[in-house]
Design a protein around this nucleic acid. Structure first.
Lengths: 238, 238
DNA sequence: CAGTGGTCTAGACCACACC
DNA sequence: GTGTGGTCTAGACCACTGT
């Protein structure tokens, strides 16, 4: 059984998308909604709070709750989960992966620090060339502690590592820290991404954390300069 | 009077930072906390939910509420408000701005679309070179509808536009959409940012929205390649 | 002033984890 | 089973907006 506040949330969201509450208009007050949905005001409030977080509405004390002018732009917005890997951004059929390096090593001091490793725990080192629609999309250099993923097979590398981690093993992703920069093309970029020597490279360096805060993956992705693949985000103030 | 849930939130946050609840440990259950804080469980729950959003703790139904392993890393984390401008990232004294262009024009079709302008409303066009610690930090090309900011003076451009907008006028920022890419250096980059012709440029293109969803600023910032200034974010799954 | 949203209470029942 | 967090109720009081 889905919680009642989620049902209310979905109902109102659908009504906004369907145009029952146009952009800029006020939606019914919380007491009215509570009566209409045969529930308490607290439950309505929770639904409205979530809708505000999703970017559809905003509330002003003393005035009312209003549909945002650009509410409809939110309706196709992805939740923030690009660290789940490429497969959630693009349909699985369009993504291919070609492993270049798959090794087990001792981490350098920088990687040890990023992954908060205590002693000299070994890590996987994975270098993969990733394709979207058969075009090079990124060169991914990934490090993961072996202790967290004891049985990673080379086979998995051809597909989505994240699908394997969340389905096969029981790992819950909590968030990711990312650093995005523009870099000069390296030899590997020229070799694998077909970059020219003077092409700029978009680099995304990230540490992915589990729900309990343990770092779980450190990776550097390098994207070719082709005018197609930029990094996009929507920051919302709450 | 600050709401009670915020006081509870701050108290527990301080206790985590002070080491009363070490990383990985369980904090007292909600009923106990409600008794200790002389409040209801719902109020405690709200405080804990906010603490989870801030990245300090996580809860598991049936098990308990735990301090994240990297909770302390959150204690200096900035809230997501870099669209408030540079002055919130760096102390005001370190930031300088040099206006290059300050004009009023009719928008191109692309800018009209980004700012969702109906007719041919005029916009400000502002080109500013921004310095941090007297080094070129970014070349900012900004467009704002005149209708939203009727009285922007050239004087304001030397400082922080955002400080002026939120303090002098009564404008509330709601969020921003950003697109980050790596680009080749243009003539302007070479001229103002002292970039070499082969240097990559980190470009941040953004549309900033007001709380009610109206787009309010469209800007393109170009950052020089000096290994110092990357774009960083922390995505949290909630 | 009336109407709105923000917070809070003191309970209740349920779903889930762990033993 | 016991203890935990997730949801929900039916009220209440307060802060703020707009007239």
């Amino acid at each position: 059984m889905e919680p009642k506040y989620k049902q209310i949330l979905e109902t109102i969201k659908k009504q906004i998308i369907d145009g029952k509450y146009p952009a800029g208009s006020m939606i019914p007050d919380q007491n009215t909604l509570a009566r209409d949905f045969k529930t308490s005001r607290m439950t309505v409030k929770k639904a409205l709070d979530m809708l505000a977080i999703e970017g559809f509405i905003y509330s002003k004390r003393g005035a009312g709750t209003f549909v945002k002018k650009n509410a409809l732009a939110q309706k196709d917005a992805l939740p923030v989960d690009s660290y789940r890997g490429l497969s959630s951004q693009f349909s699985k059929a369009r993504v291919k992966s070609e492993p270049i390096v798959f090794d087990v090593t001792f981490p350098t001091s920088e990687i040890k620090e990023r992954l908060e490793l205590k002693q000299n725990e070994p890590v996987y080192e994975i270098l993969r060339l990733r394709f979207v629609d058969d075009e090079p999309y990124a060169l991914e250099h990934t490090f993961m502690p072996i202790s967290l993923v004891p049985n990673l097979s080379q086979e998995v590398l051809f597909g989505s590592i994240y699908a394997y981690l969340t389905k096969e093993i029981h790992l819950e992703i909590g968030g990711a820290f990312r650093k995005i920069s523009a870099e000069k093309a390296s030899k590997n970029d020229i070799k694998y991404l077909a970059s020219a020597e003077t092409d700029p490279i978009l680099q995304v360096e990230q540490v992915v954390y589990l729900q309990d805060g343990r770092p779980f993956e450190y990776s550097i992705s390098r994207h070719p300069y082709n005018g197609k693949h930029a990094y996009t985000i929507f920051d919302r103030k709450n």
